[in-house]
Design a protein around this nucleic acid. Structure first.
Lengths: 340, 340
DNA sequence: TTGAAAGCGGTACCAC
DNA sequence: GTGGTACCGCTTTCAA
């Protein structure tokens, strides 16, 4: 048989042996360090090519101390909302010659921790985390050991760290005020689970907008729970029935908005105004087109990554907290007048 | 000043010193290997806790030979089409206690290679690649060295490797046949750039369906080029004008479909049938709802990852080629009768 | 200009 | 049971 077993990767040692030089000389050539004769370079390079040598960066970085990699912990890799965020982080990572570990927490605190600590065990230089947990004290030793950490979309729990958020309360306030300005007084609000920070902030914005307009808020107008289509549908139908149904709905995130659109599409005789938090593709193509309060997930990611690499470049100073504004985009569904 | 500098991470050596045991014993405790007294375990554990020690997996894996990580190279992390694919790969990786490096090639062959080789330099155990390049011979040494490699969505170029594809030609054939069955004879086809494998396959499917029905294909009915909204819009408008305009359109991917929907929405007086390749969210909520030929990106990723981990588990044998069927989903836009 | 030896932080093997 | 020592593949230090 031929040497099929010659599958083992050549190391610098192998290259050195073949080129008839010392190990360190190979290292110098590979890293393009000065102080090697052209002649030697050529001999080493020939050995490298012949053997198909490629430097083992894991070994290299172990020695160097930095791993040139960062970890990105998302709620769900497959959630379109986070796609531009990941992409923005990736772009900055690339610009800094840094590789990206990614993973989804699935909105599960344990998984978040497991994933984050796995990244730390690989000694990532930094972390960008969309928190699923509300207690990040488990990260204290890591941060103390020098792992730059930035939280995005939701704040960290129990520790003081860099964080980049959207102005969830302000955005919701604007969206609800928009409905009020169009004549609505009974406005429903369907939110994500209350333990999720953004959901809580949006609920706060809703209450503030109603209060600012001197409008009462009935318990029945508010729903927060799982964002499954079934639950959202049931809640919305409940709000739309009874003697004093809501005439408008504020949907707490894009999944809720989409479900609401489906429900409302089935009752064209009774138009209900709708404003949703988070923009989504094709919102403008629906009839009516959907008015939304849009965050900028790409900017969220970009800002977080910038903060991270600034820390990695040695920036000290206290943790910073950045809050990005939201933008109301009127498209039609939020400008429907109340039925009565 | 207090010892702020005590930021250095403790190593097993430190733990050993503090616990008054040998290095190897610490290793045993950390890895829960048998053969250590409960008493010793307790002493070591105490030292671990006191020091906040956490094993350096990079060092560990360097020694072990495997890195327990794989690389995923996509065309674009932010493309919603690939989101379920990534998620599926991630899920399997997690099930195999493997970490995931991700990156986007941006449809650029050089970037694909750069990224892939960077992953290889980190000695990933395997790779899942959505090819942007059509020449993957640069991977030969890596594959020979044992990096399990699976290509998804598009075939590899110049090398024989595992690959998972959708039946692009077959799916398109079905979609075009569907339009033909509804009475259309002049059917336009707007595709992505012809050097992209999937685009070429879909074009083939279109031609086959037309030929099977004995229908001619005029050059003017086919367009392939950039999928920018401007270009797609111009091409579609061209096809819809003139003495013998097309009465139906097959859109070669979801971006093209969406642009087509926008264009067609502006000319409600002249309904044109539309079938698009790739399903997309809210396709059912548009009016008319959009008939599509759907791939299953999640299944694409799952199949690829399964193949990968099977290889990693030692499965030998020649490269396999899996082709997943597409599914026609009739929703309305594809069932519009020809104008004439 | 070049290379030997120590070390990065662990694991493997083999004595004690 | 426990620990010494070589070693994973590379970089660093320093002497030749």
């Amino acid at each position: 048989m031929t040497d099929i077993a010659r599958t083992a990767r050549p190391t610098m040692k192998d290259v050195a042996a073949r080129a008839g030089v010392g190990l360190k000389t190979v290292s110098r050539v590979v890293n393009e360090e000065p102080g090697v004769t052209d002649d030697t370079i050529a001999r080493v390079q020939a050995a490298i090519d012949a053997l198909g040598f490629r430097r083992n960066d894991s070994a290299r970085l172990l020695r160097k101390g930095r791993t040139a990699s960062i970890g990105l912990v998302l709620e769900d890799l497959a959630d379109p909302f986070y796609a531009p965020l990941s992409r923005a982080v990736e772009d900055l990572a690339r610009a800094h010659s840094t590789l990206l570990f990614t993973g989804s927490s699935a909105e599960n605190a344990e998984r978040e921790q497991e994933l984050t600590l796995a990244f730390c065990a690989r000694r990532v230089d930094g972390l960008v985390i969309v928190p699923a947990s509300d207690d990040h004290r488990y990260l204290e030793p890591e941060i103390a050991a020098g792992v730059a950490t930035v939280f995005v979309d939701r704040p960290a729990g129990g520790i003081d760290a860099d964080v980049v958020l959207s102005d969830n309360a302000g955005g919701t306030r604007d969206g609800v005020a928009h409905l009020i300005a169009h004549g609505h007084r009974r406005i429903g609000f369907i939110a994500d689970q209350p333990h999720i920070h953004t959901a809580a902030q949006r609920l706060r914005g809703y209450r503030e907008a109603m209060a600012a307009a001197g409008l009462p808020v009935h318990d029945g107008w508010i729903s927060s729970g799982p964002t499954t289509p079934e639950h959202v549908r049931a809640e919305l139908e409940r709000m739309l029935s009874g003697p004093e149904p809501v005439t408008a709905l504020f949907a707490g995130n894009n999944r809720i908005t989409v479900t609401a659109v489906r429900v409302l599409a089935n009752r064209p005789a009774h138009p209900v105004a709708l404003v949703g938090f988070d923009d989504f593709e094709l919102a403008d193509l629906l009839r009516p087109a959907i008015t939304v309060v849009a965050q900028d997930p790409g900017e969220l990611g970009r800002t977080a990554a910038r903060l991270l690499f600034r820390r990695l470049d040695g920036s000290a100073g206290p943790p910073s907290r950045v809050e990005l504004p939201c933008r109301l985009i009127a498209r039609g569904s939020g400008e429907i007048a109340p039925a009565a």
